[in-house]
Simulated scan of single mutants.
Amino acid sequence: MKRWLPSPWLSLGIFGGWLLLNRSLSPGQVLLGVLVAVAMPLLMAPLRPRPGPLRRWGVLALLILRVGRDVVRSAIDVARGVALARVRPPRGAFVVVPLELRDVHALASLAMITAVIPGTVWSELAPDRSALLIHVFDLDDEAAFVAHFKRDYEHPLKEIFE
């Protein structure tokens, strides 16, 4: 089964997306959707990395809750910063965060976390993966931000993946 469908959930998602985008359940669209849903994962299989080892599921659950909390808090802070921009302009800044993470799955997870939190943008990863450049919408204290980022995101990811 894995030979023909290396990623059954991905194939199902592609098939469903195909039908939704075409807004048709005609036999031709269903057949074309099945062909694309089977062919794409087969063609892209060599490009997919091996799944990463998840070591601490409890830490992962806490990390997900922490990121959800931070998304809500940051969204409120950014909205407040935009609303009060004439009174107190935001102090946007680039921050260099030294990294201890080396696992590619952990770094990818960190990139997604950084992208989803309002007010932060993953700007650059050092070629040797030793530092990360992040743009922050409104920065009060750089040292406090780096400590928060490492404590709340990097260290849990290190426990989960390394």
Rank of each mutant, 00 (worst) to 15 (best):
D103F: 05
L107C: 04
A106E: 05
R102E: 15
V97C: 12
G81K: 01
R66P: 01
V87F: 12
V82A: 11
L65Y: 08
R86D: 15
V78K: 06
L110S: 05
D77P: 03
L99Q: 14
V78Y: 13
A93G: 02
L65T: 13
V67E: 10
L101V: 07
V71I: 15
A85T: 00
P90S: 13
L110C: 03
G92S: 10
R73S: 13
V96M: 01
V96C: 05
A108G: 01
V72Q: 04
R80H: 05
F94K: 12
V67C: 06
V82C: 03
L60E: 08
G81A: 01
P90C: 13
V96R: 11
V95T: 09
A93M: 04
G92I: 03
V71P: 00
A106R: 02
G81H: 04
V87Y: 14
G68R: 10
R91T: 12
S74A: 15
A75S: 10
V71E: 07
R86E: 15
P89W: 12
P98S: 09
G92L: 07
L99R: 11
V95Y: 10
P98I: 10
R66N: 15
V95K: 12
R69H: 13
V82D: 06
A111I: 05
I64N: 07
V104I: 14
H105M: 06
D103Y: 03
A61G: 01
R102T: 12
L84V: 00
R91Q: 15
I76E: 02
V78P: 02
M112T: 03
S109D: 06
V72F: 09
D77C: 10
D103A: 07
E100V: 07
L84W: 07
L65D: 01
A93K: 08
D70W: 04
G68T: 13
L65S: 11
R73I: 10
A83C: 03
R88K: 11
R73Q: 13
V72I: 14
E100K: 15
R69Y: 06
M112K: 13
P90V: 14
L110E: 04
S109T: 09
V72W: 03
R80N: 03
A111D: 02
D77G: 02
S74N: 04
A83Q: 01
V59K: 03
L99V: 07
V67P: 08
L101G: 02
D70H: 06
A79L: 15
S109C: 15
R66E: 11
A83Y: 01
L107N: 03
G92Q: 09
R69T: 15
L110W: 04
